[in-house]
Simulated scan of single mutants.
Amino acid sequence: MSARGSDVGWAAGLTLLLAAWNDLLVPRLPRRAYAPANATAAVALLAAARARGTSWSELGLDPRRLASGARYGGTCAAVVGAGYAAALALPALRPLLADARVTGLGRRELAERVLVRIPVGTVLWEEVAFRGVLPPALHRVLPRRAADAAAAALFGLWHVAPTLEGLALNGVGTGPARRAGLVAACLGTAAVDVLFTGLRRRSGSLLAPALVHLAANDLGTVAAAAAGRRDRE
């Protein structure tokens, strides 16, 4: 196979894998397997990319760019944290934090989600896949704008199954509200990919979007739990 054909095959196979992973495979896994399976997949994907000659710099893992990644990511993560703190402090905004997936969690379950499930099962895997391995694979076979658009669309579709689960648990299981919520979530996460990809590109490090991603998910979970407890008091 020619180098061009090999690049096309790699990009296509990677796209198909990611299209199926979160919406078809993960919902069939036992809950306890989520973090180990996704962490293993992240390591395997990195190994495959390196075996194909993708550099550490292309993957966003050049050690020389860690300081830049920490600076950009830390600044943006602080903004995210300030936003959650403001929403939690203001009664008018607190309902926006409500999430039935979090409200009923005990302390141990909440700690497991914040310390393991989100950092390892979600942030590590998604950042490696979507901001590390996928961009250089797509850029070798598509113009930059088309590659970025394809990655953003794929990241939006990646969230179909978890969005449907979240809507159902929050009492939006059928009808137009469900469809509107699903479309909004997919478009929103596609936009997030554009933002995270820009942050990764500007900083030169995967650490930047990973820090923001971790802050958004972890602090969002803690804020939702805190808002739920305040509402019950």
Rank of each mutant, 00 (worst) to 15 (best):
E126D: 06
A49M: 06
R145M: 11
L110T: 06
Y34R: 15
G104W: 05
A33F: 13
G156D: 08
P176D: 08
S2V: 05
P91L: 06
V141K: 01
A111Q: 06
V141S: 03
G81P: 08
F155G: 00
D62N: 09
R32Y: 05
R140V: 01
L142Y: 08
A37F: 12
P95Y: 12
T163D: 03
F155S: 00
A100K: 12
L105I: 10
A67K: 10
S6M: 10
D231E: 15
E127T: 06
G53V: 09
R232C: 01
P176S: 12
R145W: 15
V222D: 07
R131Y: 11
T174K: 07
P63Q: 04
A51N: 08
G188V: 11
P143T: 11
Y72M: 01
G132N: 05
L157Y: 05
D99T: 10
A216V: 15
A226C: 05
P135A: 01
A180I: 14
S68Q: 11
A19I: 04
G9N: 04
V102S: 00
N38V: 06
G104R: 00
G220D: 05
E112D: 13
V43A: 15
R145P: 03
V141E: 05
E127Y: 06
G121M: 04
T197M: 01
E126G: 02
A89V: 14
C76E: 01
P135S: 01
M1N: 10
L164D: 03
A37G: 01
R140F: 05
